[in-house]
């Protein structure tokens, strides 16, 4: 009887051999038909990327440049195809962003370039590409990662957008400060949202869901930080823009509510270890607008204090808030025209955009800092659920 001698893992060279005619099947099973919520949920993070890279290593090893090119082209085009088909599904976009980045890091880590080899083990150094320099393809993969990132941001914004005004401005959670309506009747406050109303909790739960999914997919921590910063920017910008257009949002009590909501967002950052990602700083215009709603607005000293406090707001924004400011009761006066003129005079030498509203379409430029993996390619085993039995571990 033939004896099956299992090979020891240290005999494997961390490559996957495949036939040229199986390339289409490879990209179909690994990319086009792979469901992030299906079999992929149990995979080690980045496994599709490692598998593609190990196939690439073999094509490189046998010195077949055509095979290398077609594998890279098919993989890239397949990723683009699946993102075109399911581009509004956050999980799909996040999954392929994480894997595209991992693939890019593998191309660097095993390029043979000393700059990327500092953290390699001796075994990993044995696995560098043999014959081809793929620096130009790295640029293409990087461009692809940027596109996927931008798609991810749009996807998240579409989900967050309907929640922001309701959760940050309209829903009142602080008991007793909602004040009195202009008619003199006390407003009904409730800690329970009306059906269909988004609350701050809705926003926080959604942010947690995004964060959890990205972590599960093995997204680089540095990339998660950039995503969260962008999310906070959009929350701050949409909230501020709404405030700048609504008189009913410009009161002392609204200022209080906004400051409370911002503190909850900061608490969320603290809880996730994201206090240094730059997200809090993106809320500064909103924070200052909320403070402006609460400070005194009568004397020259008040004007000086406002001008030094509101460094992140434009003159147009400060003036608008002051014009819209609505006193909570009949004892408080509206902001006088003279006071607003004082503010404008003090700020006339500022060099700034005359724009009133924040740019909600702005996306911070993204970077993908090199993040090598400690995973040993020769230890990777492919689960049968991926239907890649035609690949041979070498």
């Amino acid at each position: 009887h033939p004896v099956n001698i299992p090979r020891r893992e240290k005999d494997f060279q961390g490559m996957l051999e495949y036939k040229k005619e199986d390339e289409l099947k490879l990209v179909k099973n690994l990319i086009l038909e792979l469901k992030p919520r299906g079999v992929a949920v149990n995979l080690i993070p980045g496994l599709p990327a490692y598998i593609l890279f190990m196939c690439l290593r073999h094509a490189d090893y046998v010195n077949d440049d055509q095979k290398v090119r077609t594998l890279l082209t098919s993989s890239i085009n397949s990723i683009k195809k699946i993102l075109k088909k399911r581009g509004d599904d956050f999980e799909t976009v996040s999954f392929w962003l994480a894997n595209t980045c991992r693939f890019l890091h593998c191309l660097k880590q095993y390029s043979g370039d000393e700059a990327f080899m500092k953290h390699n083990t001796p075994k990993q150094n044995e696995h560098t590409l043999s014959n081809f320099d793929l620096a130009e393809y790295r640029q293409v993969i990087s461009d692809l990662a940027i596109q996927i990132y931008q798609q991810l941001i749009k996807c998240m914004e579409n989900i967050l957008q309907p929640m922001i005004v309701s959760g940050m401005l309209e829903h009142e959670t602080i008991q007793g400060v909602s004040g009195v309506k202009p008619t003199g009747l006390r407003k009904r406050t409730s800690s329970i949202a009306d059906e269909g109303t988004y609350t701050l909790d809705s926003i926080l739960r959604q942010l947690s869901a995004f964060h959890s999914t990205m972590c599960q997919h093995g997204t680089d921590p540095e990339l998660i930080k950039q995503v969260v910063k962008q999310q906070f920017y959009i929350i701050g910008a949409v909230t501020l823009n709404n405030l700048l257009l609504r008189k009913d949002m410009c009161s002392w009590s609204k200022g209080m509510q906004i400051r409370y909501n911002v503190s909850q967002l900061e608490e969320w950052l603290r809880d996730k270890g994201l206090m240094t990602c730059g997200a809090k700083e993106t809320l500064e215009p909103l924070i200052q607008a909320a403070q402006l709603l609460q400070v005194k607005k009568k004397t020259d000293e008040d004007a000086e204090a406002i001008c030094s406090m509101c460094q992140a707001l434009t003159t147009a924004q400060i003036v608008k808030v002051l014009n819209l400011y609505t006193p909570v009761n009949e004892f408080e006066e509206r902001v006088s025209v003279a006071f607003i003129r004082t503010i404008q005079t003090r700020l006339r030498d500022r060099c700034e955009s005359p724009q009133l509203l924040m740019d909600t379409k702005m996306i911070y430029p993204v970077t993908f800092p090199f993040s090598p993996s400690s995973l040993a390619l020769e230890t990777i085993q492919i689960p049968s659920s991926l239907n890649l039995g035609f690949l041979t571990r070498v």
Partner: peptide
């Protein structure tokens, strides 16, 4: 691979060029 032998740089199309190649391949196939 002998350490002294340099790797061959593979020229790559841009992302847009790859997409155009892909579109024309899909149009050609039945």
């Amino acid at each position: 691979r002998p350490p002294s032998r340099p790797r061959i740089l593979l020229k790559a199309p841009t992302l847009a060029e790859m997409e155009e190649m892909n579109i024309s391949e899909e149009e050609e196939s039945p």
